[in-house]
Amino acid sequence: MTLLSLENVTASYGQIAVLHGVTLSLAEGEVLALMGRNGMGKSTTIKAICRLLRPTGGTIRLGAEDIGGLLPHQAARRGLGLVPEGRRVFGPLTVEENLTVAARPGDWTMARVTALFPRLGERMAQQARTLSGGEQQMLAIGRALMTNPRLLILDEATEGLAPVVRQEIWGGIRALKSEGLSILVVDKSLKELASVADRAVILERGRSVWTGTLPEITPDLAQRWLGV
């Protein structure tokens, strides 16, 4: 059953059109990788899905509901859990407070989040801004999980992190996948995405140009659209 579908979504920043027609779909329990070179519209697509940017055209559906007219907080309450690019935790609040502020009723509790990322459990009383980059990322994921999302959206979740920490984050994402959580993930690491994503959508200049499984991405495709 389709959880998220975008049909020919267009969006712009002021006069500058950024998305020219993004079409994708994500099934319940699926992990979909959103790929493309820098500046191709991946983060803008995520902003449009989460209603942080109002699309200029096309439709966005969550389940059967057209979420095109919702405000950002309403979209979040419908079940979109966003882990934004650059972590962006609430720095002056403690780990516990960051998790508490986002908490909504559901299966995801503080105990479950700290079981997924034990490091958070050890730092509950610590101010978020004093955490390492990796710990802040774990907290950002934990905060999104505390909203009990139907769809977890990860925007460059491992960017700028040490390899060891990245492995820990990817381990967490794989654990979430094994629990059946639907995930939309943006990342540059083809190798890690291949280990977790069921399918991928490639964006090129604000358009979705390719959809398939990750093993289907040939070196030619990767060079042409991903620049690797």
Binding site: L52, H73, F90, A102, A144
Partner: peptide
């Protein structure tokens, strides 16, 4: 700290 980030957690 950040109103936009707060809306992403479902808080208006």
């Amino acid at each position: 700290q950040n109103p936009m980030r707060t809306t992403a957690t479902g808080i208006r």
